[in-house]
Design a protein around this nucleic acid. Structure first.
Length: 481
RNA sequence: CGGAGAGUGGCGCAAUUGGCUAGCGCGCAUCGUUUGGGACGAUGAGGUUCCGGGUUCAAGUCCCGGCUCUCCGACCA
């Protein structure tokens, strides 16, 4: 019995954070690396990141954003040009002080984000309004020396895309900021099947050096919120110190209006946490590296090669329909072991083929989401699977949406607020006067921070939940990841 | 950076008051039998017990110093 238990996954229903770590390791998404806080993203996990790249690249192309690559090292003198920016990042910088065996006069910062190095270049490239807008994205890594790390959700080194644009007018820049936010929201909702709240950040939560920050916030099963991606309106805060200026249509010198926005591997953590159950991961079909796994069941007296041919043709048919298929045809693992392995990895559909199916020209189909098992004729399989994948995608989103909806609560008094934080957590909508003092006190006393003010939040009259002074909006609060 | 815990084959663990050739399960390799929910048998490989120093006839075990990891807090995408 004991040996059996060791094979089991930790239960999501019992302890979500143990489950999460366990499932990330066992599904072979990632593994711990030798340096504290770093991880290896393994092929299965990286395939999911590549899906994200495809999705976001496609979205970025619609607006003409181009990919490029800027260096990893930033001279510290450059980083220091924008005061709020250095101040915000300095506690978590990794700095190279010795290189080539010599002490560096100007140490090199390993990028925590690339505003400074990119804008030093933008200053060189932008001279006229005709050079605008400049729309560049890069897929890269960044390093922030986190004191406490967590697979995917907070690693010392992480992967992301960072988009950096420069515009002629602030209006254009704001359009860009909101467009990026919408891309992120779509990625999360339509592809990850995770509903989000998108909105503006408070002053204390905004990007160091920026003017306004917008974010998408997703609710995790433990009632904590995950800031899944951000989009910043930088105003002219960087263009001034970096002298990114241009001659406008009237011939006058002006500073550009800038934006930056990023979507990191952290977002994958949210994807893994939200879906999934005691048996492991559940990947939404649109993100799954394999949407279908075909498992042959060999039997004595059954010609193995016949079954493999049957499976091979099946796989080719499905692939021709654009379905991502894994045919796990090896004969050195029992079928049961394969079932379990692919369940942990969250493949949405499993096809079992054996003697019966081959004889009847059918397949046995099993849904990961609920374990439902049925037999269908091979002839209709492709169509059936496309429909199933679609309905599973919807079902996952609906489930997550219901969870989100039932975990958004209004608090009209501070007592009510505290009571919610002590029990179910989730999002709390409450009036707040927008003073940093109240925000800080609420955080210390309840762990909840302001998450955002939704874009469509109505202007209302109320009193701050903490100080009872006048307030105009109900902000979203939650304990953050 | 504070608090707690832990470092023993790849992984999970064991090793009596300090005592014999450091064990067990999983995994791995070879061969055979198997395969409809984590198969079985036989054989085999694999160890500087985190590092450095000390005490002792004798150290995985005790002492000192260091390092690393995990969890919990403050900081953060």
């Amino acid at each position: 019995m004991q040996q059996f238990e060791k094979k089991e996954l930790k239960k999501k229903s019992e302890n979500i954070s143990d489950w999460y770590t366990d499932v990330v390791l066992k599904a072979e998404l990632a593994d711990y690396a030798p340096v504290k806080g770093t991880m290896v993203i393994r092929p299965y996990g990286y395939a999911i990141w590549e899906r994200v790249q495809e999705i976001l690249n496609r979205m970025m192309r619609t607006k003409g954003v181009q990919n490029a690559y800027f260096p990893l090292f930033i001279p510290s003198s450059l980083l220091e040009k924008e005061k709020q920016h250095v101040k915000g990042f300095s506690p978590e910088l990794a700095i190279v002080t010795i290189a080539g065996g010599e002490k560096l006069v100007d140490p090199l910062v390993v990028r925590p984000t690339s505003e400074t190095i990119m804008y030093a270049m933008y200053a060189k490239w932008i001279h006229s309004w005709r050079d605008l807008p400049l729309l560049i994205n890069q897929w890269n890594n960044a390093v922030r020396w986190e004191k406490r790390s967590y697979l995917f959700l907070r690693t010392t080194e992480f992967l992301w895309q960072e988009g950096h644009t420069a515009h002629e007018t602030e209006g254009e820049a704001i359009d860009m900021v909101l467009a990026a936010l919408e891309w992120y929201q779509n990625t999360y909702q339509e592809f990850f099947a995770v509903p989000v709240i998108s909105g503006r950040k408070s002053t204390s939560e905004k990007f160091a050096g920026g003017k306004e920050t917008y974010a998408i916030e997703a609710l995790m099963p433990d009632g904590k919120a995950l800031q899944a991606a951000t989009s910043h309106n930088l105003g002219q805060n960087f263009s001034k110190p970096f002298v990114v200026s241009f001659q406008n249509r009237e011939g006058k010198i002006e500073y550009v209006w800038q934006t930056s926005w990023g979507f990191s591997t952290r977002a994958l953590g949210g994807l893994f946490l939200v879906h999934g159950d005691d048996h492991g991961l559940i990947l939404p079909p649109k993100m799954a590296p394999f949407q279908v796994v075909i498992i042959p069941i060999f039997k004595k007296g059954l010609e193995q090669s016949d079954l493999i041919t049957y499976g091979q043709l099946l796989a080719e048919d499905l692939e021709a329909k654009g379905i991502r298929v894994m045919f796990d045809k090896g004969d050195n693992q029992s079928a049961g072991r394969k079932f379990n392995a692919w369940e942990v990895k969250g493949v949405p559909l499993r096809i079992e083929i054996g003697e019966r199916e081959m004889h009847d020209k059918t397949v046995t189909l099993v849904k990961r989401i609920d374990g439902e098992k049925f037999t269908i004729a091979r002839a209709q399989l492709g169509q059936e699977i496309l429909q199933l994948l679609d309905s599973i995608q919807q079902e996952l989103f609906q489930k997550a949406l219901e969870f989100l909806k039932s975990n958004i609560r209004e608090a009209n008094s501070y007592d009510e607020f505290k009571a919610i934080m002590q029990s179910k957590r989730g999002f709390i909508k409450a009036f707040w006067c927008e003073s940093a003092e109240c925000e800080a006190k609420i955080k210390t006393e309840t762990k909840a921070t302001t998450r955002c003010l939704p874009l469509d939040a109505a202007e209302e009259k109320g009193e701050c939940i903490y100080c009872k002074k006048e307030a105009h909006h109900r902000w979203f609060f939650a304990q953050a990841y």
